[in-house]
Simulated scan of single mutants.
Amino acid sequence: MGGNHTQPKFILLGITDTPWEQAPLFGLFLLIYIVTLAGNIGLIVLVWVAPSLHTPMYFFLTHFSLADVCYSTIISPKMLTDLLFGNKTISWAGCVTQFHLFALFVTAECHLLAAMAYDRLVAVCHPLSYVMVVSPRACWQLVAWSYLVASLSALVYTGCTFGGSFCGPRHIDHFFCDASPVLRLVCSDTRGSEVAIFALATANGLGTSVVILLSYGRILHTVLGMRSAPSRARAFHTCASHLVSVSVFYGTLFFMYLQPASRHGSRDKVASVFYTVVSPMLNPFIYSLRNKEVKVALGKCRRKMLNLCRHQRSAANGIRESWNVFSWKGP
Rank of each mutant, 00 (worst) to 15 (best):
I11Q: 12
G14H: 02
I15N: 10
T18F: 06
P19E: 12
Q22H: 11
L30V: 05
V49E: 12
L53Q: 11
L53W: 12
Y58N: 12
F59I: 08
F60D: 06
D68V: 00
Y71M: 01
D82N: 15
F85C: 06
F85Y: 14
T89R: 13
I90P: 04
S91T: 15
A93H: 11
V96G: 08
T97K: 10
T97N: 10
T97A: 10
F102P: 00
A108E: 01
A108C: 12
C110H: 04
L113P: 01
Y118W: 13
D119A: 14
L121P: 00
A123D: 06
S129K: 07
M132T: 12
S135D: 08
A138S: 12
W145N: 07
Y147Q: 00
L148E: 01
A150E: 02
S151K: 04
A154N: 06
L155Y: 00
V156C: 05
V156Q: 07
T158F: 05
F162S: 09
G163T: 08
S165W: 11
F166L: 05
R170S: 06
I172N: 00
A179Q: 11
P181F: 03
V186H: 01
G192E: 02
V195L: 13
I197Y: 01
A199M: 09
L200T: 07
T202E: 02
N204T: 10
N204A: 09
G205D: 04
L206A: 15
S209C: 11
V211Q: 12
G217C: 10
T222G: 10
R227V: 11
S228N: 13
R234L: 10
C239V: 12
A240D: 09
A240G: 07
H242L: 15
F249K: 01
L253N: 03
L253I: 00
M256P: 00
L258W: 02
A261L: 07
F274I: 14
Y275F: 15
T276W: 00
T276A: 04
L282P: 04
V294M: 14
V294P: 03
K295Y: 02
K295D: 05
V296N: 02
K300T: 09
C301R: 09
R302D: 07
C309Y: 03
S314L: 06
E321T: 02
W323K: 00
N324Q: 03
W328I: 01
G330T: 07
